[in-house]
Every structure is written in structure tokens, then in C-alpha cells.
């Protein structure tokens, strides 16, 4: 009798308050998150004794035969890398397959079979508001799970490279979480947790953290497996987005019609091809320039040595220019 009086919208079983827990997601993902200890031995000749410094980080097992993604800054100084699994196994013969400083990712390999692989859902694309769990080993406490939501996607101005597009989240991460997993409420990999927001004034900022999205991490990983490094094309110009009347676009609503060249790298590929400042690029490799991010990806993914066709406006005339792609040099 009473049951008929209940509101007739049924509760989804996952939302029922008695079963509301991420324990199942944690169980799926947690075994694939490892602790990484990177040891560096100082060779300062002034000190007789060797000084060993250990740094702590986390990593994510990406394949059952031992590929592990982590942050570059976790292992950048290391002379020896140690990988600790959650079941207590530890490995000292860790191979560094490659790294990419722009996305701050590094790929390690241990020679073990049948490792627990992080669950991956190719259909999942992160949206602002999605619940995420960060898994790692902060402050060497041991494996820790923290919860939050995705606060923003596609954050590019955090690092100085446009090729790094980060997820912002509010799940707390601390020193030692770097390189760990960010998973969704099913336990599927969303990203590699990497950074905490810190200002120069040392303000105490909490609740602003960043992760490299899985799609970007996967791209970098595939390139590292194939080439040992990430090769990006370089054309040597910077530009601002303009609309069809040539006015600068400063919001997200006005359709972009082209890129006005604002700066040229002297002797760079674009300069050598005869492109000048104030030219407006409307097509690159046959594709209309309507999305600066997409254009950037075309350039980044172009192979050094190949030529790309540029279509540009100069003095109300359309020109076609071939530009020979160079390789983007990355600072270490």
C-alpha cells in the first residue's frame, strides 16, 4: 500500500544512496597504478660520499606486457628507476622507452607478462562535471584514492606549449601523485594526473589540479613506441584568428575565417617560403582554417621534410605557397 504512494520515478540502481560508492571502480583500476621511485646519484666531486636522492611518483600500466606511462618530471633526473606494484612486486630493470617534455609524459617498460592493465573505454570523452577519481601514491603514504569532478577541458595556457591540452579537475593530488591515473566512475582511464596549480607568490591554492587527457597520452605513447620520441612539425610563425572581414576574433562564437601572421621566425620554414607578416592564411594542406586548434594539430602532425600547401590572402590577392616542414625543437 505504501509502496504505491512512493514517487513513481524509479531510482537508477547506481544512484541508490545505499549503493553509492566508487569501490567497484577502484577495484577495477587500482591494481594498474604503480609507484615509481626514481633514484639519482649526485656526482658532485667535492663530496667524497655519493649522495643518492630518491624521488617519488606514480605510473599507469598501459599494456599487459609492461608499458607504463608516467610523468617526465618524475624520472627526469634519474639514474635508476624502480617500479613497485600494489601487490608488493618490485622491478629494478626498468627501461625508459622515451619521453616528451611538452606533454610531460614518459614511457617506461618492464619485462613482465600478464600485468593488470588499466581499463580503457574508447567511447568515453571527458566532459566538464564528470566525476573523476585520482589514484596515486601521494607523500609515499601508500595508494590513495581522491575524488572530484572535471572542472574544465582543453586548458592550453597552463604550460607554454600549445600542444599540451590539459584537463582541469578538483580531485586533490599531491607530491607523489604525478604520473598516476585519473579514472571515471567506472574505473576507465581519463588521464594521467600531472600538476598542481602554484603561483609565484606561493599562495595556498587548493582545488585546481591538472591531468593529461587519455587521448593525448595515447597519441604520445604510440609515437614513443614507434619512434622513441615525439616528432612534431614546425613552420615558424605565430598568428591570431580573424573573421571573414579581417577583424581579430576574441570570443568563442564568431566563426574563424583565417589566421593573420603576427610573427615570423627569421630563416624559419614559413619565412623561407616567402610568407610575410600580416598575410592571412585561409587554407593549410587543403583544409580551411576555421579552428586554430585543428590547424595547430595539422602542423604538429605534419612530417618534417614534407611540403604543405598554404593558401593566403595578401593585398586582396590569393597566393599559394609551398612550405617545407621542419622539426619542432623541444627545450629540455
Amino acid at each position: 500500500m505504501r509502496a504505491t504512494l512512493l514517487p513513481n520515478v524509479p531510482l537508477p540502481s547506481a544512484m541508490s544512496i545505499d549503493h553509492l560508492s566508487f569501490a567497484d571502480a577502484v577495484q577495477r583500476a587500482a591494481p594498474s597504478v604503480v609507484t615509481i621511485i626514481s633514484e639519482s646519484i649526485s656526482k658532485e666531486p667535492r663530496y667524497k660520499r655519493q649522495n643518492t636522492v630518491q624521488e617519488l611518483g606514480s605510473g599507469v600500466i598501459m599494456s599487459s606486457d609492461g608499458y607504463i606511462l608516467t610523468n617526465y618530471h618524475v624520472i627526469n633526473n634519474s639514474d635508476q628507476i624502480m617500479v613497485l606494484l600494489t601487490d608488493g612486486r618490485r622491478y629494478f630493470d626498468v627501461q625508459l622507452i622515451g619521453f616528451d617534455t611538452i606533454t610531460d609524459l614518459a614511457l617506461l617498460k618492464i619485462n613482465v607478462e600478464h600485468l593488470p592493465v588499466i581499463p580503457i573505454s574508447e567511447r568515453f570523452s571527458p566532459r566538464v562535471g564528470d566525476v573523476v577519481l585520482a589514484i596515486g601514491n601521494p607523500l609515499n603514504l601508500g595508494q590513495t584514492i581522491t575524488q572530484g569532478i572535471i572542472s574544465a577541458t582543453g586548458k592550453q595556457k597552463i604550460t607554454d606549449s600549445p600542444y599540451n591540452s590539459l584537463l582541469q579537475m578538483d580531485a586533490a593530488i599531491n607530491v607523489g601523485n604525478s604520473g598516476g591515473a585519473l579514472v571515471n566512475s567506472n574505473g576507465d582511464l581519463v588521464g594521467i594526473t600531472s600538476a598542481q596549480f602554484k603561483t609565484r607568490e606561493n599562495l595556498d591554492i587548493q582545488g585546481i589540479f591538472f591531468a593529461v587527457p587519455y587521448s593525448l597520452a595515447k597519441e604520445v605513447m604510440d609515437k614513443l613506441i614507434r619512434h622513441g620520441r615525439v616528432v612534431r612539425g614546425y613552420l615558424g610563425f605565430t598568428g591570431t584568428a580573424v573573421d571573414s572581414t579581417g577583424k581579430e576574433v576574441s570570443d568563442n562564437y564568431t566563426p574563424v575565417a583565417g589566421l593573420r601572421i603576427t610573427n615570423l621566425d627569421p630563416l624559419g620554414p614559413a619565412w623561407q617560403a616567402g610568407i610575410k607578416e600580416q598575410d592571412i592564411v585561409v587554407k593549410i594542406a587543403g583544409e580551411n582554417v576555421t579552428n586554430p586548434q585543428k590547424t595547430l594539430n595539422i602542423i604538429g602532425n605534419s612530417e618534417p621534410g614534407h611540403e604543405i600547401e598554404f593558401e593566403l590572402y595578401r593585398n586582396a590577392k590569393v597566393l599559394k605557397v609551398m612550405v617545407k616542414v621542419a622539426e619542432l625543437e623541444t627545450k629540455l
Binding site: L139, L141, T144, T146, A171, A172, I173, N174, D204, Q206
Partner: peptide, 11 residues
């Protein structure tokens, strides 16, 4: 709690 500044860092 653990935290360098004495405030909460999620631990």
C-alpha cells in the same frame, strides 16, 4: 591531516 601549510590538501 597532512599538509605543508596546515590547511587541507585532500589527505
Amino acid at each position: 591531516i597532512l599538509g605543508a601549510s596546515g590547511g587541507n590538501v585532500g589527505i
